[in-house]
Nucleic acid binder design. Structure first.
Lengths: 154, 154
DNA sequence: GTACTTGCAAACGCTTTGCACTCTC
DNA sequence: GAGAGTGCAAAGCGTTTGCAAGTAC
């Protein structure tokens, strides 16, 4: 992520904190910084390990608490790959997307399809619901793992 | 669920057990029976409470283990509404469906849309994946909760 | 008789919380 | 200096597991 974008997101977080009577602390800013500099889907533990390299006294609980704040503030998004722990991704990366996950190697691809989104809206409306959000996870075998299968079958 | 269907499912489970060198026990059959007679999305704990009324000595661990077997055998399906616990639903009820969940009252509606399924397949294929499964949860406000909102706004 | 199963309780992994201390505003 | 935030350790939660006793086949 570009330095400039990082600055913007930091400002945005500070603003969010101020607006909600919360305080700007070195821990919170460090966690945000590490989070933004890392692409992908991090668990709280992974983020803790990374951030602790810069500040060994940083506690795991603070990471959990800060990730919640980041999600609330809209800078991070929770994702659940059903692998035990909740993961977080940067919300700024894309407006919206879903995930395609390899069941064997856990590699993930972010996908988006406008047509599916529209159909989801439609489906909700048909049932009288006002759609506020959704989560869609597609599970399968990625190209590499499919190739492995083919080889072993020979 | 009709008695006849229940019989069929019981037979199917016994067959699955035999085929895998597992045993037919009173606990397993009781859990299956309670599960089949209840529509909806049950947690292991809810099922344990129900089954315990018929057999007070039934252990929670046995319910967990049996639900895993039911899922493996294809009689039950795991669903995750992100409310903390894994839930199970009868697989025989529908070939396949997804869930529309009210964020306020937690009411759920089962939905299915052939067009969305096709697009999911297509999306996976575009990325070289072989699709094996998916989970889609739509979150929103149900008609009743929307009406409540409208009233309070007057 | 030989696995496989059971119930119990302990362990598990992720997450939250109570607390005394520290810091931001 | 008041209220929020921190790190720590303990607790919490749903779930899994080790074990000795019991049971299906």
């Amino acid at each position: 992520m570009r330095e400039e974008t990082i600055r913007e997101q930091e400002e945005s977080f500070k603003e969010y904190l101020g607006r909600n009577g919360l305080k700007v602390t070195p821990q919170r800013m460090r966690i945000l910084d590490v989070f933004l500099r890392r692409r992908g889907h991090l668990t709280s533990e992974e983020l803790h390990n990374l951030a602790r390299q810069e500040d060994p006294s940083l506690g795991q609980a603070t990471v959990y608490r800060t990730l919640k704040l980041l999600a609330d503030s809209g800078l991070a998004r929770e994702v659940d790959f059903s692998d035990g722990a909740v993961r977080y991704e940067r919300a700024a990366d894309q407006e919206h997307h879903d995930h395609l996950i390899c069941e064997r190697c856990r590699r993930t691809v972010e996908v988006a399809d406008e047509r599916i989104e529209r159909l989801q809206e439609e489906l909700a409306r048909e049932h009288g619901f006002l759609l506020t959000g959704h989560s869609m996870y597609l599970y399968g075998l990625c190209p590499a793992c499919r190739a492995e299968d083919d080889e072993s079958r020979e």
